[in-house]
Simulated assay, not measured.
Amino acid sequence: MLRDDDLALLTRPLYAFLTVAPRGDRWPAPRPVWFEVGAGGDLEMFSLPDAPKLDRLREQPRASVVVAAPVGEPEHWVSVEGAVTLHEQGGFELAARLADRYYDMREAKNRALVEEWRTAGVVRIVLRPERVNRFSL
């Protein structure tokens, strides 16, 4: 479902904007998240266990993610929609891998934050693509 040009964008250390179903009369509110593309083409993210988005994903296990190239590059974005599963296993390992990708782990404050995630435990969010939209110049 993901094409080579999608993967070229999605394997870069960019932010994804995750949108889940809102509650009540609220509007959808995308949140920036770190992510990686799993071996099967799923998008994997993580969250602290008390995050409101996890409650909403338990109620409606569907989400969308948008990733775009930064300003200054030719326009290129990928939007992925699909079913979501939540996993207690593998969350910290994913978070630690992503911290190495997105943070300078030589900095003590970043290492301390990753250790907080280990202590708190993190949930792995897996989005299985069902629909992909894209644009590139």
Results as ranks from 00 to 15, higher is better:
residue 1 M to W: 09
residue 2 L to G: 04
residue 2 L to P: 06
residue 2 L to V: 11
residue 4 D to H: 12
residue 5 D to K: 15
residue 5 D to H: 15
residue 6 D to S: 10
residue 7 L to P: 03
residue 9 L to R: 05
residue 9 L to S: 02
residue 9 L to I: 03
residue 10 L to F: 03
residue 10 L to C: 07
residue 12 R to Q: 15
residue 14 L to S: 10
residue 14 L to E: 03
residue 16 A to L: 06
residue 16 A to S: 02
residue 16 A to R: 04
residue 18 L to Y: 05
residue 18 L to T: 00
residue 18 L to I: 01
residue 19 T to W: 01
residue 19 T to R: 02
residue 20 V to T: 14
residue 22 P to E: 09
residue 23 R to Q: 08
residue 23 R to I: 00
residue 25 D to R: 15
residue 25 D to S: 11
residue 25 D to E: 14
residue 26 R to Q: 15
residue 27 W to N: 10
residue 27 W to R: 15
residue 28 P to A: 12
residue 29 A to Y: 11
residue 31 R to P: 00
residue 31 R to M: 12
residue 32 P to F: 13
residue 37 V to S: 10
residue 39 A to P: 12
residue 40 G to E: 12
residue 42 D to N: 13
residue 44 E to Y: 02
residue 44 E to K: 11
residue 46 F to M: 10
residue 46 F to K: 06
residue 46 F to V: 05
residue 47 S to W: 00
residue 47 S to V: 04
residue 49 P to V: 05
residue 50 D to N: 07
residue 52 P to C: 02
residue 53 K to C: 05
residue 53 K to H: 12
residue 54 L to V: 08
residue 55 D to E: 14
residue 55 D to Y: 00
residue 56 R to T: 05
residue 57 L to H: 01
residue 57 L to S: 07
residue 59 E to K: 10
residue 60 Q to H: 14
residue 61 P to K: 06
residue 66 V to S: 09
residue 66 V to N: 03
residue 66 V to T: 13
residue 67 V to K: 04
residue 68 A to H: 04
residue 68 A to G: 13
residue 70 P to C: 05
residue 75 E to S: 12
residue 75 E to V: 14
residue 76 H to N: 09
residue 77 W to I: 04
residue 78 V to A: 10
residue 78 V to H: 12
residue 78 V to Y: 05
residue 80 V to F: 09
residue 80 V to W: 10
residue 84 V to S: 02
residue 85 T to C: 09
residue 85 T to Q: 13
residue 86 L to R: 05
residue 87 H to D: 09
residue 87 H to Q: 04
residue 89 Q to Y: 03
residue 91 G to A: 08
residue 93 E to C: 09
residue 93 E to V: 08
residue 95 A to I: 08
residue 98 L to T: 00
residue 99 A to D: 07
residue 99 A to C: 02
residue 100 D to A: 15
residue 100 D to H: 15
residue 101 R to H: 04
residue 101 R to D: 01
residue 102 Y to V: 06
residue 102 Y to C: 08
residue 104 D to N: 07
residue 104 D to P: 08
residue 106 R to K: 11
residue 106 R to E: 14
residue 107 E to L: 15
residue 107 E to M: 13
residue 109 K to C: 03
residue 112 A to D: 13
residue 113 L to Q: 13
residue 114 V to E: 07
residue 114 V to M: 10
residue 115 E to F: 07
residue 115 E to A: 15
residue 115 E to I: 06
residue 116 E to V: 13
residue 116 E to P: 01
residue 117 W to Y: 15
residue 118 R to E: 06
residue 120 A to W: 05
residue 120 A to P: 02
residue 122 V to W: 04
residue 123 V to I: 15
residue 123 V to S: 09
residue 123 V to A: 10
residue 123 V to Y: 03
residue 123 V to N: 11
residue 125 I to L: 13
residue 127 L to A: 06
residue 128 R to V: 05
residue 129 P to H: 05
residue 131 R to P: 02
residue 133 N to T: 14
residue 135 F to S: 13
residue 135 F to W: 15
residue 136 S to I: 09
